[in-house]
Nucleic acid binder design. Structure first.
Length: 716
DNA sequence: TTATGCGGAATTTTT
DNA sequence: TTCCGCATAA
């Protein structure tokens, strides 16, 4: 058997992992060390060398992009399409639930809620429970519910004496009930149910254990509790899981990811072999040295040091900007120089911690007439007009989908007002059925002439659409629905840019339907398949690779990407690391990993910058350089504009005056003492004269804003 | 039903 | 500053 095409392109460490004997394995793969390559070649190895049937391989990723890339590379390597299951956790869970909807206790045509739909439904639930939304903040409840599901907890499992928590559990329960009535599942529910059907059906579990003996997982450090349970219930006791991850690149703790799963995996599969990929093929030695030094400040690492056979490269350049506009100008000028050398704009990335920072850069790019593209933001299938159209389609597929019902029942307006809807909602909740069924009842009895007429027309419209669409091609169905529902006409009436864009998007939806090929199982209709696709893969928010644009994105969305030139901006304490992450060590360490991820995106040149003064949310804030800057070795950094004034000390006198003064008393970052609150660090201030307010993080009392003139602070 | 204004809050994001 | 949700008015 000639295995050269599998092994030759690999280095020693990669080769060892790829050709490892059948058994559980953990590959710690540093940034830029060929992680995907190892996964892809391992799959090829299993199929071609170990004679494993592709049917018994399950490859799991987190994003659709990663899944698509993996599939593509496998096919290239093997020279043919292979029928193995490759997909995201959610995609695979969805597939299982479609196959076993009865076991899962779901209606056959169940629909999937995206986060926005989930929020809408949750709001309805809160209203029906007559809870005050200022006390029970929907966003927080949503977070609570998802966190519980991510941990694998149903309402009945949550025991608590805390009345607030008890109420949350009640809401969770009511929300679940609302989902059941409507026949919908949210993202977290997909995972939880997929786990539960295995847990509760030994026969089914046995079948899948037999079938998928080879589970390969990418980005293992990003798995949450339920994903881990799902994987391990499948892989125990005889499975051969092959997982790849990097504890230093775990940046999703805040949404339930558990780095500890890497260590837990070692305990749960004690016979697993550990491989480390430390050779980096992306960055210069300078960049790697800096990144290594930075990340070494974290505790409890599994331990890994990136190295390269390549050259040292240029030193890291640091710019201390006067304010955020100065920072943006600096970036623009540097990119100009880069482009003047004949290099491409698309090779440059501007990274920042939070989306709010993008605006200043956009303005600067606009000013400089330099093409740029901002990643993130609304994706195609998340646009309101698209979701409107999809809601009609979803009702056709599943009448019970209350979220969709509410979305379009009076959109375009057809005389079904708040009163009618309130009545419907109350009745539906009382009888435990969907709005659709309730509406069918009410039309006959409960309503006044006019309202009944309007509602009847809506019901007839949907029934009519459902009938007319039968037998049509998918794109014809979509086209028909946007015409007959009146959506298209309604947007056409908006004689402005917005309306034009909406019409264009609806037509684009028709094209998307035309280009859509349902994958795999054909037991659900093309329409249903398309609807699931729209929710689970809300569409690329990606740049057109043919446009030569500077790329702008958050650090989080930069993970997995690489660029010859990277600007790491806004390195200020409070912004990066973000204020809200600095209260506990785990949060701060995650910020540091984020910084590490940012730095390791750079191939040839890394710039870092910060602003001494930044206007954020309409107020000027003055900050200290990020503590991470000091964690990069000094000798790897060139300061571009040696700063004459070290922190441009706007000194704040306790008298309440704000001025530049040579005799500082209170300034950013210094320790102060308050009679009541004790000692703390000055983090921020705003305003002038008697209105001046100062933000202090007290060791005992926490963060406080104080009126400077009353606070009576002394410097410690 | 639709337009306007106020108050409050404001990481990070995929599915 | 900007965005969102809600209440109020037309």
């Amino acid at each position: 058997m000639d295995v050269s095409h599998i092994l030759d392109p690999l280095n020693d460490a990669q080769r060892e992992a790829v050709g490892s004997p059948l058994g559980a394995a953990l590959v710690l793969a540093g940034a830029g060390s060929g992680k995907t390559r190892v996964l892809v070649h391992r799959i090829a190895w299993l199929i071609e060398v170990e004679n494993v049937s592709p049917h018994s391989i399950l490859a799991v990723t987190f994003t659709n992009k990663a899944a698509a890339e993996m599939r593509g590379r496998i096919e290239t390597l093997l020279g043919q399409g292979v029928p193995l299951w490759v997909g995201t956790f959610h995609g695979l869970a969805h597939r299982l639930l479609r196959l076993h909807w009865r076991d899962a206790g779901l209606p056959q045509a169940f629909q999937i809620l995206d986060s926005e739909d989930q929020m809408r439904l949750l709001r309805k639930v809160l209203k029906s429970l007559e809870l005050d939304e200022t006390r029970w903040v929907p966003r927080e409840i949503q977070w609570f519910i998802n966190a519980q599901k991510d941990e694998g907890h149903r309402p009945k499992h949550i025991k608590t004496d805390d009345p607030t928590r008890q109420q949350m559990v009640k809401i969770y329960q009511a929300y679940e009930e609302a989902c059941r009535r409507a026949g919908v599942v949210d993202f977290a529910e997909l995972l939880l149910r997929a786990y539960e059907i295995w847990r509760d059906n030994p026969g089914l579990l046995e079948h899948y254990r037999e079938r998928f003996r080879h589970v390969l997982v990418d980005e293992f450090q990003d798995t949450n509790a339920i994903q881990y349970k799902w994987l391990t219930i499948l892989a125990s006791p005889n499975g051969l899981p092959f997982v790849v991850g990097d504890d230093d690149q775990s940046i999703y703790r805040w949404r339930g990811a558990r780095v500890e799963n890497l260590k837990q995996y070692r305990r749960d599969f004690p016979k697993s072999t550990l491989y480390k990929l430390e050779q980096n093929y992306r960055s210069t030695a300078t960049i790697l040295d800096a990144a290594n030094a930075l990340i070494s400040h974290n505790s409890g690492r599994l331990g890994k040091t990136l190295w390269t056979a390549g050259e040292a490269g240029e030193r890291i350049k640091m710019y201390a900007a006067f304010n955020e506009r100065d920072e943006a100008d600096f970036v623009v000028n540097r990119i100009r120089d880069w482009v003047a050398k004949g290099e491409a704009r698309r090779d440059v990335a501007v990274l920042y911690r939070s989306n709010a920072q993008s605006r200043v850069f956009e303005e600067a790019f606009l000013n400089a007439r330099m093409p740029y593209r901002v990643y993130g933001g609304l994706r195609f299938f998340e646009r309101a007009e698209i979701k409107d159209a999809l809601a009609y389609l979803r009702l056709i597929a599943s009448r019970g989908d209350d979220t969709s019902f509410e979305r379009v029942v009076n959109y375009p307006t057809r005389g079904i007002g708040a009163k009618t809807l309130t009545l419907l909602r109350d009745k539906a909740r009382a009888s435990g059925t969907s709005l659709w069924l309730t509406a069918e009842q009410c039309v006959k009895t409960e309503l006044g002439q006019k309202a009944a007429e309007a509602l009847r027309n809506f019901l007839l419209l949907i029934e009519r659409l459902a009938a007319e669409v039968q037998g049509l091609e998918l794109h014809e169905q979509v086209d028909h629905v946007i015409q007959v529902s009146g959506l298209l006409d309604m947007f056409k009436k908006n004689r402005n840019e917005r309306g034009e864009a909406q019409v264009e998007n609806l037509l684009e939806l028709v094209s998307a339907a035309r280009g859509f090929t349902p994958e795999g199982d054909t037991e659900i209709s093309p329409l249903e398949s398309f609807l699931a696709h729209a929710v689970l893969e809300s569409g690329e928010g990606q740049a057109d690779p043919y446009d030569d644009c500077v790329q702008m994105m958050t650090l989080h969305s930069a993970k997995g990407l690489e660029f010859p030139v990277v600007f790491l901006t806004g390195l200020e304490d409070g912004l990066f690391p973000h204020q809200r992450s600095t209260t506990e060590l785990a949060g701060l360490e995650e910020e540091r990993r984020l910084c590490y991820v940012g730095a390791t995106r750079a191939m040839r040149q890394l710039y870092i910058s910060y602003a001494e003064q930044r206007r954020l949310y309409g107020v000027d804030t003055y900050s200290q350089p990020s503590r991470f800057i000091a964690e990069f070795p000094k000798d790897l950094i060139d300061e571009i504009r040696p700063r004459l004034r070290v922190s441009r000390p706007y000194h704040v006198r306790p008298s309440g005056t704000l001025e530049e003064s040579p005799t500082p008393s209170i300034r950013m970052g210094c320790r102060v003492r308050h009679a009541k609150f004790g000692d703390g660090i000055v983090l921020n201030f705003e305003g002038n004269g008697p209105q001046a307010r100062i933000q202090v993080n007290f060791e005992r009392a926490g963060m406080k804003w104080l009126m400077l003139s009353y606070a009576n602070l002394t410097v410690v």
